[in-house]
Design a protein around this nucleic acid. Structure first.
Lengths: 339, 339
DNA sequence: TTGTACGCGTTATCAC
DNA sequence: GTGATAACGCGTACAA
């Protein structure tokens, strides 16, 4: 087993000093060409590579960025992650991922762990636990230490940092407007509780689109799930109770379950009832009929977040100026709506 | 902005030496209780946390594990990752993820980067590029440096390291056996090229099950995609050319596309034609009818891989003994087959 | 042209 | 009980 070789080994072996070796490997002008050659040849032969950790300690830069997301087995987050990883890697950064599992405590623990020197900056989406608790002290502590932070998707108003989001409200607004144009009258919304920032925004867009088109907002047509977990009974109850001809869902899973349920009841999609769902993922694409979806451009979101973060990391400007980039959602039309 | 505080700061502030502070914080018996109290109070007040990088340098242990996977936007890999992350986190390790994007070069670059001190061990699935090239020198170099490596899912015979796989051959064998028991005669296989280890194994199981049941292996019934990319034309040609009453697919995507195509041609699933697909993911669950699937137990796979790796990392035994854990696949029956 | 000395933050050993 | 010193691996200002 050939252990990693260090400058010290090379120096000892060649009978020169460590700094000579260091300089020779950097092709420093100070070093004589014969010594340089000798050192470089030796280094190459033994495949010398500087130790990242030592360099990190010296430079106070790890070239690592920390990503904390609520869930990794989730198409949207995965997509964002790909964007982050792509950009970061191109810039020579590695990505450390921690999953908060929607839990406030895990989010805090992971964050504090990474903040002790392991990373140069954070990119994260708040866990639902954190949004529910509405406690952002862990974020504040990190930013006060001068560690850059970029939030995406699930953000909070009162955290001072850079943010990348999509215009959720507009996405919902456009979807509902399309329903109305298509002649739909009883438009339902399937969502989660309001403490999730994106759900709140989407619900607002839903409501506004209705009102702008002279349709009353009817709370009976809104099905709110207490968590991100699916509950078949609630779906069943809802569709038994209410007659609707269009459904906007804040995520794919809720939409797909609803589609299957109404289909099992003999309704035709999109003739009898129309569907649009947020997060243009695999399920939307492969459902039958295909689910018209509001694309959130996760990959782009990730790239932008990484770009903002790395820029901050590399040019640590003292001034506290934060940007919020708002991406425009896109409606991907498929068989679940008429077009 | 309150920068991170170090032992040195505390020492200077309290007028004691650095080593005294270090010991006091570790509750060392050597230090007087009044000094200890003073130091601990101060450290708490200023929220002192040891610097991970410095500790890593000293201990030659990073408490990071490197995960290199071909693709993150892929349900199976994502599932495995969750298992890894869960176990690693519970053991106090962080996970650095790199995506090889199915490319040999990226795999090599990422691996070398991380191997220079950033991680204590690797968990990875080979990229298709690497399997095609059949070049494993980068893995060899890493293991020869004494860095533990665990391969999962996409492995190669001649790499000396620990491995976690599922019995792909058996999964395919069982699926085909089920088809035959259900009275199916013309059983197709949709797969990718053989250089992908799992596809090769699955094809072998398919063949063996046929032969064991007295059915000739007919190459015309095997549709091979040149890459993991879907190609609608190939599917169309295949089903126009061949009449089949059962299809085993090495992944969900191929299966779903095929199902949609034959449905569009008026065939009924499972009456006229039956489907089973590998990788029990979201698509299988939500297809209509649901796709009977061979579950690969990704999360469990990840946990086992992490367990093996961390065990090796923490008890770096010199003896080179490697294990290969083989998980049993499970058939999840849904509407695409009769049961 | 080469080498010495110091610092990054921490811990362990040994001396006082 | 407390502190000085060395070491982890590297880079660099400064001295020779």
């Amino acid at each position: 087993m050939k252990r990693k070789i260090t400058l010290k080994h090379i120096a000892r072996e060649l009978g020169v000093s460590i700094s000579t070796v260091s300089k020779a490997l950097k092709n420093s002008e100070e070093i004589g060409s014969d010594t340089k050659e000798k050192v470089q040849a030796f280094a190459k032969l033994y495949n010398y590579k500087p130790n990242n950790i030592a360099i990190s300690l010296k430079n106070k830069r790890t070239k690592n960025i920390g990503v904390i997301i609520p869930d990794i087995v989730h198409h949207f987050f995965t997509t964002v992650f790909r964007g982050i990883e792509k950009y970061a890697n191109a810039k020579g950064y590695n990505v450390i991922v921690c999953v908060s599992d929607e839990s406030f405590d895990k989010e805090v623990i992971n964050m504090e762990l990474l903040a002790n020197g392991s990373i140069d900056g954070f990119i994260m989406a708040l866990s639902s636990g954190t949004q529910l608790k509405n406690d952002y002290n862990h974020l504040k502590e990190v930013t006060e230490q001068g560690i850059p932070l970029v939030l995406f998707d699930r953000v909070a108003e009162d955290i001072k940092c850079d943010k990348v989001i999509i215009n959720d409200k507009k996405g919902a607004y456009n979807a509902v407007t399309k329903f109305i144009k298509d002649g739909r009258k009883r438009i339902a919304l399937i969502t989660s509780e309001d403490y999730i920032s994106v759900s709140r925004e989407r619900a607002a867009g839903y409501k506004e689109a209705l009102l702008d088109n002279g349709i009353d907002y009817n709370e009976d047509l809104v099905l709110k799930f207490p968590s991100m977990e699916i509950n078949e009974n609630l779906i069943e109850d809802f569709f038994e109770r209410e007659t609707v001809d269009a459904v906007l869902s804040v995520n794919e899973i809720f939409a797909i379950h609803s589609m299957r349920y109404v289909q099992s009841k003999g309704l035709k999609i999109p003739k009898d009832i129309s569907f649009i769902g947020f997060t243009d993922g695999l399920l939307s694409k492969y459902a039958s009929p295909g689910l018209t979806a509001i694309a959130q451009h996760g990959e782009q979101m990730g790239e932008i977040a990484a770009e903002i973060l790395i820029d901050k990391v590399e040019n640590d400007m003292e001034e506290e100026t934060y940007v919020t980039r708002v991406l425009e959602p896109t409606l991907i039309e498929r068989g679940s709506t008429v077009n």
